[in-house]
Design a protein around this nucleic acid. Structure first.
Lengths: 335, 335
DNA sequence: GTTTCCTATGTCATCGGTGACAGGGGGCCG
DNA sequence: CGGCCCCCTGTCACCGATGACATAGGAAAC
């Protein structure tokens, strides 16, 4: 393996100075046509490729984009990463990924690491804690999915309150009066907004909310499954603990709940969840969801970040992407 | 925002030379205890963090690891990426991801880009084409999921032939004689080995293979769903086109097939697929699969790469991870 | 007391490019 | 024909760290 050739080698072969070769490399117009030709020829013959690290050092900033989420394997975030990477690849920008596991300290650590790598920009799905340590003037920043406490920056999300309200209203319209809520930790704005939507839909229809049917704080699919078991048990024990429909506030929760309902053959209970998932249409009945496309969010975030890199001065924007109900059957079951 | 402090600033505050500060930073033992103390104190007071780009330039190599797969959003690869990132984070190594969309040219491009960034090592799920352009002496390299044509490097995979053989044998033991094969493009070793396994199981049991039941070349879940529809239609038309079980060679295909079977209420047809997926246990009957854990593969790949970075001279290894049948019902249906 | 050696620290060059600025040479103008 | 300007190219310094090598000063050895 011959060592990678450097720009000096090119310059020498072309018989020009390093600086001139550099100008050709950077499409500087003030280079005579034939000189440019010789340099380009030399580059080809040496199979020259510029060293990104050296350029980054001189430029003071890298071309790489950092992407920080709580879990890469989460289907929603995997979609987002995929579309961000695809969009960034079009601009020749590599993407660094990191996961936080919902741990504030870890989030801070991985972000700091990226900053020391001088990433050109960051896309971040914030954790629950305060993010004042991350000053947005320090690096171009786009948030996804939820705002970050103590941080003003571009944000791409869906209207969580409304998505939940729509889902619950859908169930109410189909005749349900006692609807269980199963959701994620309400320390995250995404989650409490969905809970708000659930409550708002009830209030607007003059329906009371039974406290024992509201079950936030399910951090994993497993916990959600446990909660579902518990809800069913209570409903069986006491007549007044009953419910005819379930609203799941997150995909994670849905993936726990649906198997429980099916394992118990409780297809008499209506179900609507936020977040689509693979195979949702494969059940009988199909699973009705309010979908927010990860791919769309990723694309919007990538576009926004590229814009901000081009023109750092622009005003902070909050982009709301639409979320719509996909009716597949489970949400249209009547009590 | 004060600009990030540099090592010279630290040196100045501590009243030592740049070089001495550098020695402290690198735990060089030949520094007097009190000098070290002053420097560390200065680092803390300036909140100093070394510039990773400058270090990379000087060192000739970056600490970053590159990860290249065909699609980041693929559930299997998302698992792998997640575990690789988690493992690498423990070693303080950032991870760059890139997707190839199964396009050789694109694969070559993203890998070259990573090399120009001087990544410390690469983990690669090869595409179908020839990979001779990527010399393994150029960068520490670990392959996952399948070998690469024209390339000798560490490889982490499962025994695809055997996994398929096991799955099909499982069906045969449950009394099936006519088993359909639905799989992915057979240009990829992963895929044709699974087809081999399917054929081998039949041969060992003295069973003939009906050509019209062997359906490779389903690149997407959608195509697999179409193929399943077609198989069912033919079986309904001609008596001899019938089958009592389906073997799906990839998760992608399974995700297409299962909904079709359930939509048509064909739960009389047995099913076994390679690759587990979310909700597989939620169906009635649950979906029997041969599982190969993406997390395990990612962890093994990360460990292997770290080993190779530590000791570049080691012999190339081929690590086979176990894959085991998870019986959930669909594979235990009798004809 | 001188030589030797070692410890702690410093100076200089370097990694591979790019910014700032200088300067030679030809064309155009007065 | 001198002066001005512009086009093209070159020299030098620098981005932030580390490798190679040098050196002051004291301890150990003779």
């Amino acid at each position: 393996m011959s060592p990678a050739s450097r720009l000096v080698d090119v310059a020498q072969v072309a018989g020009v100075s390093l600086r001139t070769a550099s100008r050709v490399l950077n499409d500087d117009h003030r280079v005579a046509a034939d000189t440019r030709g010789r340099v380009l020829q030399a580059m080809r013959s040496l199979n020259f490729q510029p060293d990104a690290v050296a350029r980054s050092l001189r430029a003071g900033t890298d071309t790489t984009i950092g992407f920080v989420v709580e879990a890469i394997a989460d289907p929603f975030f995997a979609d987002v990463i995929d579309s961000v990477e695809t969009a960034m690849a079009r601009h020749g920008r590599p993407v660094l990924v990191a996961s936080t596991r919902r741990d504030d300290a870890r989030a801070q650590q991985v972000v700091q690491r990226m900053l020391h790598r001088r990433v050109a920009g960051l896309i971040l799905a914030p954790t629950a804690g305060d993010h004042a340590w991350l000053s947005p003037d320090r690096v171009p920043l786009v948030l996804i999915d939820r705002p970050a406490a103590g941080l003003t920056a571009d944000l791409i999300d869906i209207d969580d309150r409304r998505a939940a309200d729509d889902a619950v209203t859908h169930l109410i319209r189909h005749g349900h009066r006692r609807i269980a809520y199963v959701g994620d930790t309400s320390s995250i704005p995404t989650s409490w907004r969905r809970l708000e939507g659930y409550l708002a839909a009830h209030a607007r229809h003059g329906l009371p909310v039974a406290d024992h049917l509201v079950r936030p704080e399910n951090a994993s699919s497993r916990e959600a499954a446990g909660t579902m078991h518990d809800l069913l048990r209570r409903a069986a024990e006491a007549g007044d603990g009953s419910f005819t429909a379930v609203f799941s506030a997150t995909t994670r929760a849905s993936v726990g709940i649906v198997p429980v309902l099916h394992a118990r053959s409780r297809t008499d209970i209506a179900f609507v969840g936020i977040g689509d998932f693979a195979m949702a249409e494969a059940f009988t009945p199909g699973i009705t969801v309010v979908d927010h496309s990860g791919a769309r969010i990723g694309e919007a975030a990538a576009d926004r970040l590229i814009d901000r890199l081009t023109d750092p001065g622009r005003a902070v924007e909050h982009i709301r992407l639409p979320a719509a109900i996909i009716q597949r059957g489970s949400g249209e079951i009547r009590p």
